[in-house]
Design a protein around this nucleic acid. Structure first.
Length: 451
RNA sequence: GUGGCUAUAGCUCAGUCGGUAGAGCGCCUGGUUGUGGUCCAGGAGGUCGCCGGUUCAAGCCCGGUUAGCCACCCCA
């Protein structure tokens, strides 16, 4: 008998963990729909060349192969399939494929598993669920969507506060600000500088400055200016003035910088009235992905910053393009598995029980099992999730069966039916056609951790 | 892909100088002849990740391997 070992990076929850995850998914979906996003699902696979097109060298893609495939030579063909590693690439393909039947601007949400062949770690998986929202336009996309989308995400995550999910901070920046500033300084390798700046929180400003000089060929003065820019953050438009002052100091004012600052300022102003304190301008937010062209977003769980971003995204001028038409978009993606795994491992919340069952009907003896089944049917007919005891064991055993599963009520059939709340021990007479449990006990609920 | 650490009961772990395996929790039975949880008594459960080597003797030492965790990389 082979020893069963867990496969790292492919998370599976126990039933009560799944109750938590399902609640998170329900709340996200409801919020997205409240804001008019249409739900879609795309296939799990895309042609490999499509998957590798956008991502650069090291995208770890799982390829799909038939066990009975005749030869392995076909592997090099473009028909080779891979599992999608995000929901943006499949969505871009979907938009092109259905452009004639979609109405633009098109708002969609998409909640699905994605796969990445990475080394797993705490909060990092090889199979995980993402919840994406994107808005895509045909030819053009108004800037106000770059303001709206992070606020929808903030609202969605905020709607989970009452079950114990911590506050979030949506950190925002604008690619045009960084690029405009760097170019104003005379830096050519904008991508490379962004990649180093992204490491600030991990290795600190001194090491980043060294790297900028050593790897990107920046002068110490340029590196210092980049770090000064990255140090700017705040929740009001004052940050914009500080960036302008810094740019003046280094003679780095450019048109691109100015455009970016205007966009960033519009986002900060709108956010400060619609979600005060949640959205923070942070000029060190870089994002590794090279296809972002405007706003970029990262979201941290307050008190769990080391977990990394639980919701990221940005604006891309060419989400999709068929040669003739270009479709710009803006979107964000919540790492549902990362979020849920931390909620569970940190014990921030819990499910009231792992089974749906609210009532266990006891069985006196196998001859009268039909009577117990009848009680269960009567309760179910009124929408009460009910189970019948697996055997006519001693009542103590049957109560224990319920207790182990968190089932709050045990029903004792007879000439005079009785139902017992096994938490309080209270037992009362009850009518199968009329009794119902308190609303709070009808279905499993997610509740904040006690204390 | 690179590096560090780890692997013993269902779970969390202990195991001294190399001398044939332990605890707590959980589980089962009984005390309680049809009402759980507490308490008491008893019980089941192990190819010490796997392969090889050293040795009279290996959970312990050595080599390899697999898996897990962490860091880098990258990212949700």
């Amino acid at each position: 008998m082979a020893r069963i070992t867990p496969l790292s990076g492919f998370p599976e929850w126990l039933p009560d963990g799944r109750v938590v995850e399902q609640h998170v998914l329900d709340v996200l979906r409801r919020t997205f729909e409240l804001h008019g996003f249409a739900g879609i699902e795309t296939r799990a696979v895309e042609p490999l060349d499509q998957l590798l097109r956008k991502g650069e060298t090291s995208k770890e893609v799982y390829v799909l192969d038939r066990l009975q495939a005749e030869d392995t030579a076909s592997r090099s063909s473009e028909k080779q399939l891979g599992l999608h590693f995000d929901l943006t690439v499949p969505f871009a393909r979907y938009v092109l494929e259905n452009a004639g039947r979609l109405a633009f601007p098109f708002k969609r949400f998409q909640i699905q598993k994605v796969w990445r062949g990475e080394r797993p770690q705490d909060g990092r998986f090889r199979e995980f669920a993402q919840a994406d929202i994107d808005v895509v336009g045909a030819g053009e996309l108004p800037y106000h969507y770059e303001v709206e989308l992070p606020l929808v995400m903030a609202e969605a995550l905020g709607a989970l506060r009452d079950v114990g999910v911590p506050e979030v901070r949506v950190l925002v920046n604008n690619r045009k600000v960084a690029e405009g500033f760097y170019r104003g300084l005379g830096i050519e390798d904008v991508e490379g500088v962004l990649r180093q700046i992204d490491k600030l929180d991990k290795i600190g400003p001194e090491r980043v400055a060294e790297l900028l000089v050593a790897e990107q060929g920046a002068s110490p003065q340029q590196a210092g200016a980049c770090l000064d820019l990255a140090a700017i953050s705040g929740t009001d438009v004052g940050v914009v003035d500080r960036v302008r002052a810094l740019a003046d100091e280094h003679g780095a004012r450019t048109e691109l910088l100015e455009t970016g600052l205007e966009e960033l300022s519009a986002l900060i102003v709108a956010a400060s009235t619609r979600a005060p304190g949640v959205v923070v301008a942070d000029l060190k937010i870089a994002r590794g992905l090279d296809y972002y062209t405007g706003a970029v977003y990262e979201t941290l769980l307050v008190g769990h910053e080391e977990l990394g971003s639980i919701c990221s995204g940005g604006r891309y001028d060419t989400l999709a393009s068929d040669g003739k038409n270009t479709y710009p978009g803006v979107g964000l993606s919540i790492g549902v598995s990362r979020l849920v795994s931390r909620l569970l491992s940190a014990g921030l919340l819990s499910a009231t029980r792992g089974v749906p069952t609210a009532v266990l009907v006891a069985v006196s003896d196998e001859e009268s099992r039909a009577a117990s089944d009848a009680v269960a049917a009567a309760l179910r007919a009124r929408g009460i999730p009910t189970d019948v005891a697996p055997s006519a064991a001693k009542f103590g055993k049957q109560i224990k069966y319920a207790d182990r599963r968190g089932i709050p009520f045990v029903w004792f059939p007879g000439d005079e039916h009785q139902v017992k709340d096994i938490r309080s021990g209270e037992q009362v007479e009850a009518d199968p056609a009329a009794w119902e449990p308190p609303a709070a006990d009808l279905w499993p609920r997610v509740v904040p951790a006690a204390g």
